[in-house]
Design a protein around this nucleic acid. Sequence first.
DNA 1: TATGAATGAGGCTTCATTCAT
DNA 2: AATGAATGAAGCCTCATTCAT
Lengths: 221, 221, 221, 221
Amino acid sequence: MGIQERKKRERERRRQQIMVAAKRVFSEKGLNKATMEDIAKEAELSPGTLYLYFKNKDELFSSLSLRILQYLNIRLEHIISSERELKEGERITALKEAMYDVYEFDPVMLINMFHLQSSETLKNLSPQLLKNIRDLSQSSIRATAKLFTDGIENGTFVDEHPIALAGIAWALFSGVVLWEESKRIIDEEKNYLKETLDVAFEIFERGIRRRPPPDEPSGGE
Amino acid sequence: MGIQERKKRERERRRQQIMVAAKRVFSEKGLNKATMEDIAKEAELSPGTLYLYFKNKDELFSSLSLRILQYLNIRLEHIISSERELKEGERITALKEAMYDVYEFDPVMLINMFHLQSSETLKNLSPQLLKNIRDLSQSSIRATAKLFTDGIENGTFVDEHPIALAGIAWALFSGVVLWEESKRIIDEEKNYLKETLDVAFEIFERGIRRRPPPDEPSGGE
Amino acid sequence: MGIQERKKRERERRRQQIMVAAKRVFSEKGLNKATMEDIAKEAELSPGTLYLYFKNKDELFSSLSLRILQYLNIRLEHIISSERELKEGERITALKEAMYDVYEFDPVMLINMFHLQSSETLKNLSPQLLKNIRDLSQSSIRATAKLFTDGIENGTFVDEHPIALAGIAWALFSGVVLWEESKRIIDEEKNYLKETLDVAFEIFERGIRRRPPPDEPSGGE
Amino acid sequence: MGIQERKKRERERRRQQIMVAAKRVFSEKGLNKATMEDIAKEAELSPGTLYLYFKNKDELFSSLSLRILQYLNIRLEHIISSERELKEGERITALKEAMYDVYEFDPVMLINMFHLQSSETLKNLSPQLLKNIRDLSQSSIRATAKLFTDGIENGTFVDEHPIALAGIAWALFSGVVLWEESKRIIDEEKNYLKETLDVAFEIFERGIRRRPPPDEPSGGE
DNA sequence: TATGAATGAGGCTTCATTCAT
DNA sequence: AATGAATGAAGCCTCATTCAT
């Protein structure tokens, strides 16, 4: 039915509207200090309406995590699918940029996502949502690992287990985010995430890239 | 007065008793789901007693973070002071091990510590505690940077700004912790922090270590 | 919008409902022994609802004081505005009656109002409410003083600073209220506020009224 | 027994020490904001010790009220007993000064005393203390009334019921205290209790003093 | 007698959630 | 579907009071 379809789409639009508002509020105040009323106000809706679209606060929050994971997945899949067009050296750069965009997409939610871990929070989630989150997370890991698998196979990278490399790349990213964040707190200065991340990835790449054959002098070092 | 001394020690013991209980409860439930009553019960004390030793919930939580920072500092200072006895290659290894021990010391609090950052939480802290946290954090950064300064000066490391290297090392560490943690959640499996961390640091070191002089062919490879 | 208007009125009605309940509970138990739950029960509402209409306990209490001040002001303004219609001797009587009505309006809150003064309590008030209270208080003083200014100007009263007279009139009133109240406590008898107040004001008036002209020999002067 | 006697005196001294401290703390913070620990600190004792001398907080507070009443009584009795030495006009002045001294003795406690009235508070008092308070209050009223009885009897005062006059005198006093206090709050200025009280009592006396016989011109005035 | 650490009841307040409109 | 007033459970924290030393 066209009318059914339209309703469904309308419903989805409303969900997005709420999530956009929630993202802003969670980013500003954190999971706990943000109230459902804050979010309702930001979405220009009433508190009661939120519950027509999300079972409860935890599920609304988790949906946002899911959204980041989805975005991450899209970006990673895009890199994989255009792998052929990318020169060897560009792949890790593409990965890094994808990660940075994910961060830009929602810096605070990214950090908060790590706190989804409380088993108490997980208990409140609907099984469907929980499954989604797990699937997307695994998919992201696999996609990232694929990049390294290829690199290893075609001899660009020193042989390492690709899953481990994927993890380290991601760890590097999340770690830099946290590090910059905590430096900012301590120093009350602005942070320089992008630069730090560039250096970190340069080092990482240097560490895993197979050195050019000896007869081609490694370039005055 | 011996009696004064004993009282002071008794008081410190009680503080520790509460912190041990708090650590357990925070680890299990997280900062927000853990209630003061939970902690009191775990410590086999009444809620009111907690407030004789900690100004409020945030301060109790922060004190635990402080403990980790203190431990981290001790470990780092130890490395610095015994630098001469360590061979070149051992320094980063020592750093990594220190970080790993810090993780072992209190895995969950380490993760939670990254969330101390909410300015709302910081407002509730006593100035003294806040200063301690900041001082220890800065001291840790400086100590870590020192390791890299030395490495750069004696030509072991490719020239990079030592603070940046220190940051990346720490970022690598915290990132791996988080990564492993989230993998554990997703896979419901045990985590392999130590191995992952070993690989990560090996790559890191490879990336920043100056290659041996050309007359000693860097390994036909 | 008619609908907006109705909602506003509904809201005001609810506020009044709460204030009526609060007044009863505060009167019976005093500011400190009265709990928000007591008031909620008396108003047949839940505790949370009170906070939809009043910022906190102090503000609810102060709002009641404000109500008395408002009533006092209305009465005083009425006297001022109908001054011409009042014979000279009737003005102080009108003042006294106004004061007595204020007492009748809410005896216990009148007494409690004197305790609004704790600066700790004042700190919790919203700036708007604080301003209202101050403005109304000042307005009351000025209105009362006006009565005496006029009396002095037309030669009815012995020349005294009108503000001082206003203060003394009001002091007489509040003092009699307290005195009667404490007598009631001590004697466990009913109090006789009205009679005592009549006598007090008669004496007061006698003390400030200029004696009739000498040709009617009330006594040399 | 001399030793029993000494112990009793020692005990009384300790009681006084506590009351002095309590008076200071109650004056500064009011009945509710003052904590037993505050008082203990001020008295340089431990909280537990307070309970060796006073049944509970209410009783400690009430004892202070009792102390003011005792002081008031002493002053009034002194006036009564030296009545003969006082000229007619000096009696009310002496009364006023006594009242002022009572105020000076402990301004805030005087105001707080009016709040002893909460029946909840009274319930907590020991029967003995309650009786003392009642007796002293009645005694004060009678003593004050005596001054007016005499004034009326010897023709100085216009005939009024002396109890009423006593009440009004006292009301005037307490009213002025409150009035000045509330003016101070509103205007954030210093108060001028003594001056206001002088004027009030002058008016009061003028109002009740029998005018001199007409043949003796009241003094050109 | 004095201590002061410990208690634990209870107050104020918040806020996720519901439900009558 | 949307509202938003109302709910009431639950959390943090205070402080009068007790009791083992």
